[in-house]
Design a protein around this nucleic acid. Structure first.
Lengths: 232, 232
DNA sequence: CGTGCTATTGTACGATCGTTCAACAAGCTG
DNA sequence: CAGCTTGTTGAACGATCGTACAATAGCACG
């Protein structure tokens, strides 16, 4: 032994200095939110290796034991983080679209938000990949995804439906009944997600505004060739 | 102690039975291939948890020590498995497309192969996700992906270029010069990959042939509206 | 059959994982 | 200031990870 242990030394209080607490107690709700944020940040930085109690607690600046005080186990923390992560994304896209007033402007705002920071970020893909990796074997993760993805699809369906209705009234009299809205939404989200994924994996291949243009011309083609489009 | 240890007991040879070797030696090349196959199979079954020396060696039916005899470490085995996995996929798509003789038929064959087993399989997505998870922090994985993805893009560009050339000669005289082939390939792969990903995550949402139809109508629109398409 | 090469085995080791839990202390209350 | 509640700490535990390495044994060959 070559002296007092670190902890004992730190416990000595110099009366000349103001007493500084070694930690700050927080309300469970706030601490839970902080731990969820730390989880996402840890995933962004370290990928799958960031999904560890010790890495997360270090990111949050707390001890390893605290997590199990606020969450029953690691899986519950991860599911909560996934839920928060999803909801924040969908909400951001929703409010971005809601700021515009015409269907075309709403679509453009939605696309701009999709293909610009903070969504268009390789770190965000890292987080997604980790969650996808857990997806198949984790019931809570599956449930969370099903719920928030339904919201996402609803948002996209609404955007497309408005556009198709406008195209029908102002166009050559073709009703939107000729378009399979279900398939249209599926194809549009696929194109969107595929471009997003591609950009994150290799950002140099194309610019974000090119992705927006590709999506917009897809929707234009949809509006133009509405009838006969439900053949599949 | 309640008797001889398992290993000692197994070493006793009953002269009435033919001697059965406890293992079979194999040529390094064959064993390496078997270990790579076991790695992919293990990833399909157990996802990220299948990426473990013990799980892989159990899947291959060998002991834990053998892997480090044929591969310097785990990362090299994983990179080799990733390379094999990629090459097999691209080769399968290539040969499927090569079997047809017209550009349109080649595209259809390519799409059919993309949206049918063994490619269209949630297990395959599981493998992809694991590799994506390693992607950002592993140089060998990045290199392998860059190489095989270039092949993939070349294949798709060829398919699209042939179609556009045919459309130009038989159509209204519009040359394919009006189309940005680079952007077209990017958009097409994004739609393709997005649909594939979507189906694997939730197979009930649409049928594979609907995905094929969406891709084909995208290409149709591309051929029809060739000029002015390079605006982005 | 005996010999040599080496593919293969399986134990051992240190590191790290998620979780538990007794002790500690921050901060409100009287 | 004393007492109490409880958010927080950090050591400890058993399990599992990737790797190393000495011992084993398959099998070709003289």
């Amino acid at each position: 032994m070559r002296g007092p242990r670190t902890r004992a030394a730190a416990a000595v209080h110099n009366p000349l200095e103001p007493r500084r607490p070694r930690f700050r107690r927080q309300l469970p709700e706030q601490r839970r939110a902080a731990l969820i944020a730390a989880t996402i940040e840890s995933l962004k930085r370290y990928g799958h290796e960031g999904l560890s109690i010790r890495t997360i607690s270090a990111q949050a600046g707390v001890s390893v034991g605290l997590i199990n005080h606020h969450f029953p186990n690691k899986d519950e923390l991860v599911a909560a983080a996934f839920s928060h992560f999803n909801r924040e994304l969908v909400d951001a896209l929703k409010t971005a679209a809601a700021r515009a007033d015409t269907p075309a402007a709403r679509l453009r705002a939605f696309l701009e938000a999709s293909f610009s920071p903070p969504n268009l970020d390789a770190d965000v893909l890292t987080v997604w990949v980790v969650f996808w990796g857990i997806y198949r074997h984790s019931r809570p993760i599956q449930r969370v995804r099903r719920e928030t993805y339904a919201d996402y699809v609803r948002l996209i369906r609404g955007l497309l439906a408005d556009l198709l209705a406008r195209a029908a009234e102002g166009g050559r009299g073709r009703g939107k009944g000729g378009v399979n809205l279900r398939l249209a939404a599926i194809g549009f989200t696929a194109l969107l997600d595929g471009l997003w994924l591609e950009w994150c994996l290799e950002p140099g291949r194309f610019r974000p505004r090119e992705a927006v243009a590709l999506c917009e011309s897809w929707v234009e083609a949809l509006c133009r060739r509405a009838p006969g489009w439900n053949s599949a």
